[in-house]
Design a protein around this nucleic acid. Structure first.
Lengths: 114, 114
DNA sequence: GTTTATAATCGTCTTATGGCGATAGGTTTA
DNA sequence: TAAACCTATCGCCATAAGACGATTATAAAC
């Protein structure tokens, strides 16, 4: 299936990254290329499920794959994806630390007040 | 609802950006804060649908909102989100330009060959 | 206080997504 | 060529997500 617009692909990339299993797969593959038979034992998911997830990342252009005899090897195609994830993490951290700060302020006011 | 882990929030942010309507909303709000009554006519969606989308962006910590009398004003809370979107766009563009290049090569080889 | 305006929420429907086991297809091994 | 291996795909189910109209809640205006 060929992509037509940037918008479609953009959504496809964001969607691909909206699943915890797929983010774990990316992290796992950041250690280097792996065949499915290596990936499977590392994940508590059925073979069909893992295969589907890998394909979603492939279709989003995040992973590449090559066939090596009877196995399929998956690898990171665009390492930029890790910058993306770090970027989101920094946004998430910012929020959580704000929450934490609010929590400390609240805590302090409580312990002072009473 | 308070977030517990970075991972949850990370998924929430990616999911929030996985929808075309919500990306349009962000683009629209990049022009400055707007109340829902201003947003509605700009989108071909029902009031309830737009409200839900805005709330998803709010829950992800991307938008903020303030109540102004009988209206609710939404605004970008974390402008970093636009860096994120640009980043994804550059990944998408890279892929499409590779496709385009492949297309040109194919076209060339066809016109040469026959 | 009744009406109007604005926006969130509820209930419902339809479609999309994630999960699994079973099956199919292709490759190596015996 | 038969068997074993590896992985993609199919069919199914359960849950999530997006859309809408109707309802509810609150604020402003009359």
């Amino acid at each position: 299936m060929v992509e037509k617009t940037i918008s479609d692909l953009r959504i496809k990339i964001f969607s691909a990254l909206s699943d915890p299993t797929r983010l774990e797969l990316l992290e796992y593959l950041s250690g280097g290329e792996r065949c499915v038979c290596e990936i499977l034992p590392a994940f508590q998911r059925s073979q069909s499920t893992v295969s589907k997830h890998l394909n979603i990342l492939y279709e989003a252009g995040i992973l590449d794959r090559k066939i090596d005899g009877k196995r399929t090897v998956y690898l990171i195609k665009d390492p930029q994806v890790f910058d993306l994830i770090r970027h989101v993490d920094s946004m998430a951290l910012k929020q959580i630390s704000h929450l934490a700060e609010a929590g400390r302020i609240l805590e302090k006011s409580l312990s002072n007040g009473r």
